[in-house]
């Protein structure tokens, strides 16, 4: 197997896809978004939960490939007690990484372990898989009362 595929399916990603964090919708959300990847039918429902800083956490439920599941899991780890602006910065940084076609390494201060998904950017057809949860969060944020 080429190093390319190993780079895409890194052990961290496989672990997250098998035992995803944040999975299971929780009550008490301030916003919710449901997103579908029409090319493959993958879907996610993501909820935003409020806290003192603004956003306490997210919870989600969905099904899809290893990349989409791991990405939602890694996003859950990242979104802990942040204000909305900080969340938006992280989404923007992740989107930039996904569009980099392997040119960027990713900012681990902003993205934490989610930078392991950087390898996905070399596989244009899979970028949508990795973005699914992030797009859901972005959409949900727009529904949160300012």
């Amino acid at each position: 197997m080429s190093s390319g595929l190993e780079g895409l399916y890194q052990e961290v990603i496989m672990d997250h896809s098998r035992r995803p964090h944040g999975q299971g919708l929780k009550d008490g959300q301030v916003a919710e978004s449901r997103q579908i990847n029409p090319t493959c039918g993958d879907e996610i429902t993501l909820r935003v939960h409020a806290g003192e800083a603004g956003i306490a956490s997210i919870s989600w439920e969905g099904h899809g490939c290893a990349i989409s599941q791991a990405s939602a899991s890694l996003l859950s780890d990242l979104i802990v007690d942040l204000d909305a602006q900080a969340v938006r910065e992280r989404i923007a940084a992740f989107r930039e990484l996904m569009r980099s076609r392997g040119e960027l390494e990713g900012d681990d201060e902003l993205l934490g372990d989610a930078i392991v998904l950087g390898g996905v950017s070399r596989y244009v057809a899979r970028v949508k898989c990795a973005m699914l949860a992030w797009v859901a969060l972005e959409d949900a944020l727009q529904r949160v009362e300012p």
């Binding site: 390319g4 895409l8 399916y9 493959c40 039918g41 490939c65 290893a66 898989c129």
Partner: peptide, 29 residues
């Protein structure tokens, strides 16, 4: 235990082109 997209990605790495997804037949799936 393995999503079709991941199966397809693995096969693509071997130069094998297959279709993955719902093949425009969601009710069937």
């Amino acid at each position: 235990g393995v999503h079709a997209h991941d199966v397809g990605q693995y096969l693509d790495d071997l130069g094998i082109a297959v279709r993955v997804g719902h093949h425009c037949a969601q009710p069937l799936h």
